[in-house]
Design a protein around this nucleic acid. Structure first.
Length: 712
DNA sequence: GCGATCAGGT
DNA sequence: CACACCTGATCGC
């Protein structure tokens, strides 16, 4: 939960994601996304009054955020004061003080944050330096490097301060499975269950918040089953979402909610009240998305854990993991960093200890001297962290920060031959990014979190639903009639040029029309869909017939009941292996009286191969994804020891490890966010193992090594 | 009567 | 176990 006060010190005339107290005097407001903890004060009478007396005060946000905000009547009064800014389009804004006439100019750029629909980061540029406010974000490794507008020419912009989403800035959250892994895990579980009979239904126990739409859409696309939700009026202008959700309860996937939905579930009732269909009782399992990090840091485990007879938890995170945060920040390399969030079990000091070493001054002072050893940083870190961070960081604002070398981005792409520190750092990013994308074979967008956005449950409910039905009708008849310009307004050209940067707009775009028509084959007719509640008349299996077929393969196995332990350890996204079939089986799934059948990934690769749209978790990319996954996995194992060691605050451990692993290429391969991964300076010679060993010995003995840094 | 805040529950 | 969200009760404007 954000505890950001609303203002950045460089530009105190603007307020971001906070609208109460001092923020009432801001000259301009910014909203990064539509989650409650970022909207404090946004509908308070005080602010409303101020708005009424002002022509100048505006709220800037992405087009999607604007849309979501204004679908709630509680925020309607903002209507004439909201300015939707296109994503990735630098915009000049004059901040005028209405009483004094004082003026300040800034340029703001919205960057996709990958957190929930419409979520963005704000990049402010002006006289007081460049400031990046991340809001809440989930960006995979290497994604900062792919954002054009974080760069100036071929270099990373000189960023003074980053106000960072540090929700999971704790080594505990070192690794969080990627969106694709999580999605695929859920997909296979849902597929396995819903394909048993039409009376096997899944309840996705999602919190009231934007960010699960990505999941709904993918499930719907893959399985041909729309997702039942309480409300969908807010998506009335987002056909790509709207098409995959429904208010028709007769579907096999539910994400509806009820104040006491746990009770419902225990009574074999869905939150929407459904308990049987055609007189046949439903067989319900629940899947609760939650942020889980499976295994310790590098150890990969399942993204699905069975927690009861018919309850599951699925890994799902709206926020970047520890390693993703470090990757992001180290790429940006700002002068200052300020945490927006105190991570779950942490303190500000602790977070700063993690973040500071990724900032400029720290690196500048520490790197050249100690880099080859990579360990002494810790010694000094303590000293630094005891000082006031502002003093620390402000000391050398004007100093020449080690700029990312020009060639960095170009070089980094084809190979990792760059020698300069920054180039190499970038290589790493790019490399892991490459791996990530290949691994998943689709580009992600966002997904998210726990914050509530359920503001307007009451009055407008029915109204919304009614209008939504009409919308569906329209949509079904003319799938291409609705423009996609609402989605952050990014053109397809832009998207193509940044195809790998996660963003909602891109997500919404991908082959929508084709898929719509494809799905329409599976669904009743458009006309049928238009009949509002009859949308799912086909839920009797028509819609997923093509998918079911794949499950009858010879490699199909049965879901077992044991907990996470027994689950397949080879593939994160595959829940079931044959070895898990055991005596427990029957009792476990007794509820449905059936065993769930699931095909393994490899089999899935032979599945129906719709198109290779970026958002297709399956299809022909699948086998490829699988291979890479395995490949990565073994790599992970190789470097496991080192990655773990990196977090042990014991110099000697790291030392001995380093001496055993002198191969830089290999080291570069390891977790890029490791503190010890800092590559040598451009001119530095690559330390030889024996030299290193010698150095390490001295170090361990407490001798000075400063005058010997010239080990060649 | 509304909103902010807090406690309790999940 | 901790968190964050929801609900309901209370207080103050």
């Amino acid at each position: 939960m954000s505890r950001f006060g609303g203002r950045v010190r460089e530009y105190p005339a603007v307020s971001i994601d906070r609208f109460d107290r001092d923020n009432l005097r801001a000259r301009a407001y910014f909203l990064s996304h539509c989650h409650k903890d970022h909207m404090k004060g946004l509908r308070a009478p005080a602010l409303k009054r101020r708005l009424e007396g002002s022509l100048k005060v505006k709220l800037y946000c992405s087009p999607v955020t604007k849309e979501l905000l204004l679908t709630s009547w509680k925020y309607k009064f903002w209507e004439n004061h909201i300015v939707a800014l296109e994503v990735e389009t630098p915009t000049h804004i004059s901040l005028v003080d209405e009483t004094s006439g004082e003026k300040e100019d800034i340029e703001v750029t919205l960057l996709p944050a990958g957190h929930c629909p419409g979520s963005v980061m704000f990049l402010f540029e002006g006289e007081n330096g460049t400031v990046l406010y991340t809001g809440d974000f989930r960006l995979a490794k290497g994604e900062a490097a792919r954002m054009e507008l974080l760069h100036s020419g071929t270099r990373v912009k000189d960023i003074q301060s980053v106000y960072l989403d540090t929700t999971f800035c704790d080594p505990k959250f070192y690794h969080i499975p990627s969106r694709e892994e999580c999605l695929n895990g859920i997909l296979e579980l849902v597929r396995s269950w819903t394909s048993l009979t039409r009376y096997h239904v899944v309840w996705l126990n999602c919190k009231a918040a934007y960010g699960y739409e990505y999941l709904f859409i993918n499930l719907s696309e893959e399985l041909g089953i729309k997702v039942h939700v309480n409300k969908l009026g807010m998506f009335r202008n987002m056909p790509e979402i709207l098409y995959h959700v429904t208010t028709d309860r007769r579907t096999q996937i539910h994400a509806c909610r009820h104040p006491r939905d746990d009770e419902c579930f225990r009574g074999n009732r869905l939150p929407c009240g459904m308990t049987c269909q055609n007189g046949t009782p439903l067989h319900i399992i629940s899947i609760k998305p939650s942020t889980m990090w499976f295994g310790e840091r590098i150890k990969k485990t399942n993204v699905i854990v069975r927690t009861g007879e018919s309850t599951y938890r699925a890994c799902f995170s709206f926020h970047s993991s520890y390693s993703e945060i470090k990757d992001f920040l180290s790429y940006i390399c700002p002068v200052n960093v300020y945490p927006n969030v105190l991570p779950v079990g942490g303190t500000e000091d602790k977070v700063m200890e993690i973040l500071k070493p990724l900032c400029r001054l720290y690196r500048r002072n520490m790197e050249p001297r100690y880099k080859p050893l990579g360990t002494l940083k810790r010694v000094h870190k303590r000293d630094l962290s005891d000082t006031d961070e502002d003093d620390l960081f402000d000391t050398e604002l004007t100093s020449a920060r080690p700029k990312i070398p020009k060639q960095q981005r170009e070089e980094s792409r084809p190979s990792s031959t760059g020698q300069s520190e920054n180039a190499e750092r970038n290589n790493e990013n790019t490399e892991s990014y490459k791996a990530t994308t290949t691994y998943t074979s689709l580009k992600v967008d966002f997904m998210d979190c726990e914050e509530s956005n359920d503001d307007d449950d009451d009055e407008d409910d029915e109204e919304e639903e009614e209008s939504a039905k009409n919308i569906v009708q329209v949509l079904s008849h003319e799938p291409d009639a609705m423009s996609t310009s609402n989605f952050n307004g990014v053109t397809s050209d832009q998207q193509d040029s940044n195809a790998d940067v996660p963003r909602w707009d891109a997500f919404f775009k991908c082959n929508k029309l084709e898929e719509s028509s494809e799905n329409e084959d599976n669904f009743p007719s458009s006309a049928d869909a238009g009949g509002s509640q009859s949308l799912f008349s086909d839920s009797d299996g028509v819609s997923d017939s093509t998918h079911i077929s794949s499950q009858n393969s010879s490699q199909s196995t049965h879901i077992s009941e044991q907990g996470s332990q027994g689950w397949d350890s080879q593939m994160d996204t595959v829940l079931i292996t044959s070895q898990e079939r055991n005596a427990l089986d029957v009792s476990c799934f007794s509820k449905g009286g059936n065993r769930a059948v699931v095909s393994v990934l490899q089999e899935a690769a032979k599945d129906t191969q719709p198109d290779s749209g970026r958002w297709k978790p399956l299809g022909q990319n699948r086998s490829c994804a699988y291979d890479v996954a395995c490949d990565l996995k073994s790599k992970d194992c190789e470097k496991g020891a080192e990655a773990v060691t990196a977090h042990v605050p014991d110099v000697l451990v790291e030392i001995s490890d380093s001496s055993r692993t002198p191969d830089l290429e290999l080291r570069r391969d390891s977790q890029s966010s490791s503190d010890f991964e800092i590559p040598p300076t451009p001119d530095a010679e690559v330390p030889q193992p024996d030299k290193l060993h010698c150095l390490y010995k001295k170090l361990a003995a407490g001798e000075s090594i400063l005058n010997e840094k010239h080990v060649s």
